[in-house]
Design a protein around this nucleic acid. Sequence first.
DNA 1: CATCTCCAGTTCTATAGAGAACTTATTAAT
DNA 2: ATTAATAAGTTCTCTATAGAACTGGAGATG
Lengths: 250, 250
Amino acid sequence: MQRMFEQGDELPGDERLPLYQRLADELRQEIHSGQWRPGDRAPSETWLSERYGMAAGTVRQAIAMLVDEGLLERFRGRGTYVRRPRFDHSLFRFFRFRQASGENAVPEGRILRRVLEPMPSYVARALALEEGSAGIAMTRLRLINDQPALAEEIWLPADPFAAFMELPVDAVGPLLYPVYESACGQLVVSAEESLTAEIASAETARLLRIDQGAPVIVIERVARGFNGTPLEWRRSRGRADQFHYKTEIR
Amino acid sequence: MQRMFEQGDELPGDERLPLYQRLADELRQEIHSGQWRPGDRAPSETWLSERYGMAAGTVRQAIAMLVDEGLLERFRGRGTYVRRPRFDHSLFRFFRFRQASGENAVPEGRILRRVLEPMPSYVARALALEEGSAGIAMTRLRLINDQPALAEEIWLPADPFAAFMELPVDAVGPLLYPVYESACGQLVVSAEESLTAEIASAETARLLRIDQGAPVIVIERVARGFNGTPLEWRRSRGRADQFHYKTEIR
DNA sequence: CATCTCCAGTTCTATAGAGAACTTATTAAT
DNA sequence: ATTAATAAGTTCTCTATAGAACTGGAGATG
């Protein structure tokens, strides 16, 4: 019986697609374009079903898609909201400090260096920018109980992060992403990590206070904003004897 | 209007739970108990809705849960089936060989050693068995283009895997899990991996044909059957310069 | 033998409606 | 002023129904 009337004709997109798909695409677009920002409240199911002239169940199905894509969150009785990622939890979901006897405390962070520099090619490529684009380069040390745990090189595109250079380095707490948001309006929403291992160079041995030649784990991360733009490139090195990385496969 | 009549009263479990939850629990139980085996066809939605006296939509919702738990698979027009994991794909989803210029070929496998031995404590613990339980210990080398890529220690509980010892080692192909199933009726469905790094020992350097002291990635895996029983413990070591491990976080 | 058509069975999409369960704010009562 | 009841708004659960879209096989047709 569907398509007898003109439901969803205001929706863009391929008409042969299921209605709930087209609505989901539309709502996803609202989020990616920045019309709806993380934390915002989304329209209610009834409002949407009236607005687009479709059954409540169909709207529900569309929203369900975005929920398990991680874009929306639903709260019974309260409403539907654009999801705000909690990075302090989720980024350390896989990554565990071996000696940490159960809990995942966020390690302290100390910025050792912060300069404006043209980006090398491997960073520019990861951030989808031109080689030599203006960037902010940082060296950062992360500590647990005053013991060095991770040494990080971090690159940011200079353009949207200009305000970050003005902040005194001591004002930056243990987590960078909240600072990116408050100071520059850049919200990190997702990330990809690629993990490998190598032998400690003289430099990293000094930073991590381990022997040169000891094994270190290397994690490269590209962090992205709500519309998928790459925002930050980061390479972290940690003592292999204190880390392990856990996943489940099925 | 729900619960006016006696829908779902044949279902066990807490009556205060939603109907679709209780049905999902029931179906999950069928799978975990081994009543339904991977590859089997599950009853149709209409059959279930008549059997338990509930609306088709409710049945559908229950099945949807199990689908995204990975237990069931639905095929339009064909039916619903208990999922058969495709391990050759999924286990290498995260794990990539660096030089592999795009494709993920399954590396060849060669069993170097296979003996009956009592399990050491760290294996027994992972497999939820007593220390010293009878086990099958293997050393296995995996190669890509005749180059050694991974060196593996593998432990199996002797009890359900007795038939595996009878097979000639040369008859075992590149993948072990299909052999576990055909020879011993043990189907691997999920696994957990824990990854770290170390320096190549003399032994692994010899096996992988690398320098002693070169960095190696170490992956420990526990593979589980359809009811969650641990079936296999495995520790794989690979050259760090040829591996990287990829994940996405959000 | 090969191909086509039709049919029964299945999942998928969509509609309409009713009430339960929960949250928040407002209003009334103490 | 604090507490309790009420109401409005939201998501959640469930019912019932209808047809679309797809699959596989059986039977007709060439």
